[in-house]
Every structure is written in structure tokens, then in C-alpha cells.
Design a protein around this nucleic acid. Structure first.
Lengths: 241, 241
DNA sequence: CGGCAGTTTGATGTTACTCAATTTAAGTGG
DNA sequence: CCACTTAAATTGAGTAACATCAAACTGCCG
């Protein structure tokens, strides 16, 4: 995971899996025609576990994840934390960063990551004239709200099994959209601690539930790989109806 | 709670407690100068318990609550439901309704309510030219996200006492902003069932926790009134730090 | 007065947490 | 390639928090 030289970095975002629909690609598409090295954009990277954004701190950039996994979370004073969303390549760290300087969330890298930062003022200027950027942003906000609605319902109303199944089901299509999947084996860099923090359980209990899933031949999770054996049954457990 | 005649309804929204900052007032302010009876706005009311918006159904209007209380929720097939937010006068039922026809949430009236509906196309047209409407909308989205971040953290990480205290603390300043409060007595139309559905507990357990709060002289809740006795201690329990 | 919805209370059951020990896996340096 | 170290996952036993079930109580309204 060595850092590629600066000159190579620009190509990373252009190859974002979501450049067709994502803000990153939308913006880069518009500069390709005009300015190959804009001042209002920069790339950088972070190591696994490194903090990228601190809640309530002010930033002049809007960030897009270009490669790797990250997660947004809310930290409590006593060490507990709630993970609110996992971020995959093409995701904006926070859609509302376009309007608000201070971040609503803390963000940490889960794997090694590469990011793109766009200067907010420039995005807002373009937002005013580009319907494409407008709808990209609106869609990102809608996806965010839809996701947190579901997560809230899962946390408030569902059992441990259902919550974990729901988390997996929510991630599976997003991983599929970004990777070639062979033999139902999905790249999956979360530790059980991350799952626990995301669904409001202890790591110990997560281990027991995943053990149950394995025994029942639903999914197997180890070494950064999620193997999906019985998707139908997983959906029966984890789909919100 | 009889329905006032149509002619009187226009004045209701003008006296919205949040007309200074809310979308409702922002829009009405701009028409007061031009068109006293616009076609792109209409008023209506609903009785206590009546359903106002159905999730996934399409609407041509963006709704603002003018009087009374309502709540947005996600309904599961087996009867469980998660209440995601309580709506007070001046609140948009959903900020993202400006961009998305189909509602992300179901909404029910808690008390008798009066609402204002603005035709979406008209709002979007005005949005393009009015920085005031833009920032009002952005602020509403930001408040929504901030709120669901906190609620998620409370549901995932906190005990029953903390969750209920948190809910009360979240509502208290919003009630204060809309009512004259005497002797720490807040109008509070929620049933224990609503509290339960909002914080992911059973009504029975909510009753026990509230009983504990009463014994300890923190708050008393009965007959639609919340009496706040020891705010400091309530904050010690329910504030997320 | 009777009925109904909402709340309270008690007894019991289940889920998930805590604490602690053990196993497994992943590096690290010799 | 192999001890040694460390982080992560697993397992077991005991406990706390919350759910469930059922009954009694309250205030309200017809």
C-alpha cells in the first residue's frame, strides 16, 4: 500500500468505480475539458485506522473516497462509539459538507485509503449552474437519509441476528458494485469490533451470532473475506419488511 | 379543533412560530408582496392519529406543519414501528421532499394538525434564484442529519434511561421555542407508546423508567404535560458526551 | 353506571452484557 | 524457518437489562 507518486494520483479518481454517477466523476468530467490540474482539487491518502475527519472541526474541502474503506462515527467520552456508515470508493464522506464547514461526523480509514478533496466554494459555484451536480448531490443526500432511516429501525426494533444480517445485506450490493465477485466471496475488511459498533452490540455477542450464521451455513466471515452461502435465508432474517 | 374557514387558514401559516427562519415563512414572505392567494400553495388539516403521508407514495407537494404535533415513522409488517422524528409547528415533514417525489417516511398526526402544502415544482423554481430558500433548506437538512446521528448513537449505545432522557432533552428546547412555558410545565402530547416506539423499548418499560424519574424528582409526565423538576440531573443522564 | 384507552405493577423469561480464560491468526526479529 | 509477541476471535459461566404476560388500577366519556 505504498503511496503512488503525486503525478499518478490524479488518475485514481478518474477510475473511481462511481465516476459515472458520483460527485467525484461529475466534477472531474467537467475539468477534463478545461483544466487538467485544478487548484480547487487535491489528492491525499491515509493508513488503516488513521483519522481523516474530526467531528465539529471546520474544513474547507468536500471529501470523496477514491479507494479503500472508511467509516463515519460518533464518539462518546467514555470510549463507546456508534458507527453510522461505512464508506466505499465513490462515496462522499458527507454530502452536507457542501453546505456546512464543520463536520457532523468523525471519519476513520478502515483500510489504506485514497481521497479527493474539492474546495467547497468551487463546488458551490458549480452547483449553481450544473443540474448534473445538483441531482448527484440530491441523490447522495437521499441515499444517506434512506440508509439512516433503515439503520434506526434496525437498532430500535430488531434482534442482534436481524441487525447483523441487515448490515451484511446493506453492504453486499455496494461491494458488488465495486468489485468482481467470484464464488460468492466478498472483500470485507471489517473487524468484529466494527460490526459491534455499527449495530450496537458487544464484540463478544457479534462473535456468537456470526458463529451461529456459520453453523447454519448462511455466511462465513474470516480473513477479510465474506463468503455468502445462503443469501435467501440471510434476507429472510435481515430484510426490513 | 374545528376546521376554520378557508379564508382564515392563510393567516395560520403566517403566524408560524418559525416563520422567521422556516421554509414556510420564507415562501409566504415572498408571496405577501406579490400574490395573496397563490395556486401553488394550499392548506389542510388532520385529526389526531390520522395518517398524513405514506412511505414510498408519490406526492406533488412539499409539506410544512403549521400547528399541532406529528411524527414520522417506519412501519414494519408485523406491527412494530420506529418513530424517527417528532414534528412541531414550522417543521418540514421531510426536507428532501423538495427533490424526491416519493416519501421516505410515513407521517401521522399526533394531535389535531394544520398543514401547508407547496407545489414542488414551484419551490424548486424559487430555490434556483433565492439564496434565502437555499440556506433554509440546507439548514433543515443539516438539522435532520444532526438529529438522526444523535438518535442512532442513543439507540446503539445507551440504556433505557439515557434514551428516554435524551428524547426529552431533545424536545424541551423545541417546545420552548414554540410555547410560553410557566412553572416548567411543557405541553407534551406523546403517549408512552410513542416514546416506546421512538427509543426502541416496550411501553411497559417506558412506564417503569418514567416512574423512576418521578420518584427521583427529575420529571413528571401526565395528562399531556411534562413537568421538568431537575433539568440538571436529567442532562447528566441524557446528554451525549 | 359501564366501557374503554392508557398506565401501573408484579412475576417470570429471554436476550445480550460482563468477566475471564483459551484459541487462533498475524506479524517480527533472530 | 522457528520462537516470541500481539491483536483478534472464540468459548464458558454468571449477571443485568429489558421483554413478555397478565392482572389491577386510573381517568374519561357516553
Amino acid at each position: 500500500m505504498a503511496n503512488p507518486p503525486e503525478t499518478a494520483l490524479a488518475s485514481i479518481c478518474v477510475t473511481c468505480p462511481h465516476r459515472e454517477t458520483g460527485l467525484c466523476g461529475t466534477l472531474l468530467g467537467s475539468i477534463a475539458e478545461t483544466d487538467p490540474q485544478p487548484r480547487w482539487q487535491h489528492f491525499f491518502s491515509a493508513r488503516p485506522g488513521e483519522q481523516i475527519v474530526v467531528r465539529n472541526q471546520a474544513y474547507d474541502d468536500v471529501f470523496v473516497l477514491c479507494s479503500g474503506w472508511a467509516f463515519g462515527y460518533f464518539q462518546l467520552a467514555d470510549g463507546r462509539r456508534q458507527i453510522l456508515k461505512f464508506l466505499l470508493p465513490g462515496d462522499m464522506l458527507s454530502s452536507l459538507a457542501v453546505f456546512e464547514k464543520s463536520s457532523l461526523l468523525s471519519v476513520k480509514a478502515l483500510t489504506g485509503v485514497q481521497l479527493s478533496g474539492f474546495v467547497r466554494s468551487e463546488i458551490r459555484a458549480r452547483l449553481a449552474t450544473s443540474p448534473e451536480i445538483q441531482s448527484t448531490l440530491a441523490n447522495s443526500c437521499i441515499a444517506d437519509v434512506r440508509h439512516s432511516t433503515e439503520l434506526l429501525t434496525a437498532l430500535g426494533q430488531c434482534t442482534a441476528e436481524q441487525r447483523i444480517a441487515h448490515l451484511l445485506l446493506q453492504l453486499i450490493p455496494r461491494i458488488e458494485a465495486r468489485n468482481v465477485i467470484r464464488e460468492q466471496r466478498y472483500p470485507f475488511p471489517l473487524r468484529q469490533q466494527h460490526i459491534a459498533d455499527a449495530v450496537g452490540l458487544t464484540p463478544v455477542h457479534v462473535s456468537r451470532v456470526l458463529g451461529g450464521f456459520r453453523e447454519r451455513q448462511l455466511v462465513e466471515l474470516s480473513e477479510g473475506v465474506l463468503k455468502v452461502i445462503n443469501l435467501r435465508e440471510l434476507e429472510r432474517i435481515g430484510l426490513l419488511r
